[in-house]
Design a protein around this nucleic acid. Sequence first.
DNA 1: CCCCGGGATGATATGGTGTAACGCCGCAGC
DNA 2: GCTGCGGCGTTACACCATATCATCCCGGGG
Lengths: 172, 172
Amino acid sequence: MAGTTTGPGEAALEAALDRAAAGCLARGAQLTELRRQVLKLVLASPHPVGAYALLDQLRAARPGAAPPTVYRALDFLQEQGLVHRVERLNAFVGCAGPEAHHHCGHGHDHPHQFLICGSCGATAEICDDRVAAAVADAARAAGFFPVRTTVEVEGRCAACAAMTQAAPAAVR
Amino acid sequence: MAGTTTGPGEAALEAALDRAAAGCLARGAQLTELRRQVLKLVLASPHPVGAYALLDQLRAARPGAAPPTVYRALDFLQEQGLVHRVERLNAFVGCAGPEAHHHCGHGHDHPHQFLICGSCGATAEICDDRVAAAVADAARAAGFFPVRTTVEVEGRCAACAAMTQAAPAAVR
DNA sequence: CCCCGGGATGATATGGTGTAACGCCGCAGC
DNA sequence: GCTGCGGCGTTACACCATATCATCCCGGGG
Ligand SMILES: [Zn+2]
Ligand SMILES: [Zn+2]
Ligand SMILES: [Zn+2]
Ligand SMILES: [Zn+2]
């Protein structure tokens, strides 16, 4: 195994960044060096990462970086569908499947849901059309015109649930 | 009409507070004067209200109030299912139907979804079982054990959508 | 009566998150 | 060259949330 919880390997990471840059160009936008650096940090993190944590890491390469530096980059990356914000955590994650979603018919502003483990912090992105449809239906039934939907589920991931059952006392 | 966007009338408000107090007692908790004041402020607001806005209003009655004062009260009210937090807004709203939900089989920790108008700020709470079921199914299908679910839809309410269509330039 | 424990509140301090506003620079395009 | 615009640096500020310790009250035991 190359990296268990350390994120993707360096080579795969650079390849993903190149793909992201190409996608931006195709949409008439530009993945600048700064934005690329921020995206790299987000993708390299195994868990959602706060803006100020990104800022700390970013300062290694850019000593003058300040909050607006990273927030502007994150806004851009969100518009490009490369990064999502996790509202419950005030944190950011790389999109799990920017090109996989193209394959299943979704653009760069695709519906998504998060499964957040309250025990280990792991956050998984899923893309369930039934959920998206149910939410859109319920909203329209109330005379509402949905634009953007946030679905975040807090609970236990499979690994943590198994561990809790095996050794309940080991948590604390 | 008693109050269009000014929230419920004083009498209805006090009645709701009395019902809330009775519900708390039934669950072995106590709606103290402070908590009752905070709940009253939340219920009186036609829109989601931030903790510091509540604090400002609360100081009229309690000059010494500080952030922990209002946050502790809000935590209690959330546990009692009398108030919800809107993650996207970092704000709080009174639960739309604490006793209506009992009627349809939900306890004081009931599933709910928010429809947030990005134009006028109006936030409606709905309780759609199909949405709740779809989210729970999707989570379990991924081997995840859901505990608490957040569903928040940003878009346009019926009134704002109609207005935008009638006079597109009137927004700005 | 005194002591004690727990719940609620008061009070102070600090940390975390996000944005406004201004200015500079480089690069088209006229 | 001037201008418009996008990207970025820089400063300052506003808003959101929690940690920590002290105090008060009130019911239960000794
Ligand atoms: Zn995604
Ligand atoms: Zn876990
Ligand atoms: Zn509710
Ligand atoms: Zn509206």
